[in-house]
Design a protein around this nucleic acid. Structure first.
Lengths: 355, 355
DNA sequence: AATCAATATGTTAACGTTAACAGACTGCTT
DNA sequence: AAGCAGTCTGTTAACGTTAACATATTGATT
């Protein structure tokens, strides 16, 4: 018994078929107010038969909320984004909210587009997990000023009425680098940033800080990014960057004895380049990654890396957002910083360092 | 000059401030109909000043379309999903549609929830890229019957009014397995399915078919999945499955000389398990993966795998959907099958096979 | 000067839902 | 017998937008 896919069914249609008014049907659908048991059953049956789906547009328009949250991600290809969204969904689901995800492909322009789309469709709040950009920050500012609840994850942007969740990646980068220094390394490379633009990446700043603090010179030749100077590439293609960057470093007369990679994918690329060059990890070169993706414990050798509590960040960001939705725009900013944890595996085990 | 975040700005507010009617403002915003140049400028200025954002709910309600498309993905952590969504977005963007993504975490229940959420919020169409399930298929049927345009990617489900895009994974699995057979392998394992439930995975069927066709016995002991028999895990954690499965296979008295892994992540896990056991790839065990993720060319040894034109599938699915939105529900099903391509790398190079 | 097309703005009603209020009926208490 | 609380249903108006139609005004054409 296939329905003719004509105009979609409305409350009025059901009301007519069940011999009541749309309001009564509304009460049945939403389980609100008094409805006679017999009437309720009848309406339910008719609604089921007609395959009724409520119109979220009309509903949202009337009620002035959609029970919908937007999440803006830079890309979709990495476990980091997946864990984040999982954390967010865990919280939203149990509170009856629906999550819609937008991808910016790490472009400021699409970041803005995502904000606009979500705002236009009147989500009740937005969680932003993309990296800061001038354009993006400007629009974000407007969004927040317009009263849309916003919760930020790991984005270097502050607003008195937007909540913020971050991992302390400065400290993470610092500790990763210090770990290498303590193993005796003196020439430590960094793969994943281009010095052509000012670098806001916290883990990189931690790297610089650690070198400084231990009296090591910062050698710009040991810092490599990808060719076009775009440090906003989708995570999954950064293996390439790690491979190329490492190859470049290995071809130097005085090559580094260890490298710190911007993320685990980059580190895996580096790992491979080292092995291809006939060298061994960690004997010839020590490698540290970042993020502790599942793959990190399955490389050979397993990767030393820095873990951040990703899912937890998603959870907390969602909780902050819901609280702001309930309490209103004037609520002061909540902020939570999570500690990172150095995970030492085989890729840095050696203590025999060649100068 | 911060705006008070009171009630959001409406056409009426702007109209009042600019001394015109809401209709005129609407015309300015939508660039439709005649508006005097001076008026237009004035309205634009006021709208800009008041930081106006149009109300997509009201707009959608009135116009009976939202210029919005939903994409349902099983998980978010893998390059496959990323490429798919990129393809979809490429097409949608140039046609002025916005994409909202929902994640089902490979659960039938959440699959249904995603369909419902998207339908409730009146997206103009839905692209479904999750694996088939009874529950999911039932609801999908209802959606389509209700007249919502649906386009499917790689989902084993057919409906006269839903378009379908697939890669020929049966052939892909067949060719991968045949490749191993031609190299002389006779004991070929498969990692990634549990035989406790009927297996609909096409690439696995291709594996079975190839064995059959070459007169090889199918040994159920060589087919391993993960512990709990759930073959719908998020892609990113399947390294674990590959590792554990391979370890199990290696502990057999007559271990396989090659394995075909459900996807590249699984293959990487297997690779690692082999190396941990002190064996070598491809000398002792040949390994074939599936998907050709960027990582596959950066493992050691680089992975033989099967590539499918992922982004192209996304593009075509989006094109099918838009055409259906324009032409209406009655349009007959369009279907396109893409060929897969075996990519031979180092992980199967050997021809010295131990019996 | 009448006619016409193009330009510019306004009016009305509707999209589908629900909050707020208003009756009407029931049975129970005093 | 009046009063009252509880139950059930209905009416009205509004959420913000725009399609369709209506009304002016302008300038050019005959």
């Amino acid at each position: 018994m296939k329905k003719q896919p004509g105009k979609p069914v409305t409350l009025a249609h059901i009301a007519a078929a069940a011999g009541v008014t749309p309001m009564t049907v509304s009460r049945v659908i939403n389980e609100s107010g008094y409805v006679n048991a017999a009437t309720r059953e009848r309406v339910r049956r008719v609604a089921r038969e007609m395959n009724y789906r409520r119109n979220g547009l009309a509903r949202g328009l009337k009620r002035q909320r959609t029970e919908t949250i937007g999440l803006v991600l830079g890309d979709i290809a990495n476990p980091f984004a997946a864990e984040l969204s999982r954390g967010v969904r865990e919280i939203l689901e149990q509170r009856g909210y629906t999550l819609f995800i937008c991808i910016s492909e790490h472009s400021a322009k699409e970041d803005v587009q995502a904000f606009d789309s979500l705002a236009d469709h009147r989500v009740d709040g937005v969680i932003v997990a993309t990296r800061a950009s001038r354009l993006g920050n400007e629009r974000l500012q407007e969004l927040i000023d317009a009263g849309i609840p916003v919760s930020l994850i790991g984005r270097d942007f502050r607003h008195p009425h937007a909540d913020l969740v971050t991992a302390d990646n400065l400290k993470g980068g610092y500790e990763a680098t210090t770990h290498l220094i303590k193993l005796g390394h003196r020439r430590i490379g960094f793969i994943g940033v281009s010095l052509t633009k000012s670098v806001g990446l916290r883990r990189f700043q931690g790297y610089l800080e650690a070198l400084n603090e231990h009296g090591l010179l910062i050698d710009e030749k040991l810092i490599v990014g990808n060719r076009d100077g775009n440090d906003q590439m989708p995570g999954y293609s950064t293996e390439e960057m790690g491979h190329d960057g490492m190859t470049k470093l290995l071809s130097m007369k005085k090559r580094p004895t260890a490298i710190f990679a911007r993320n685990d994918f980059t580190a895996v690329g580096a790992l491979n380049a080292i092995q291809q060059a006939g060298l061994s990890v960690p004997r010839d070169v020590g490698v540290v990654g970042y993020d502790d993706i599942p793959l990190a414990s399955h490389t050979s050798p397993p990767l030393t890396t820095v873990r951040q509590p990703t899912r937890e960040q998603g959870r907390v960001a969602a909780e902050f957002l819901l609280r702001r939705i309930e309490d209103g725009h004037d609520r002061p900013r909540a902020e939570q910083v999570f500690d990172c944890q150095l995970v030492v595996r085989e890729s840095t085990k050696s203590d025999r360092i060649k100068s």
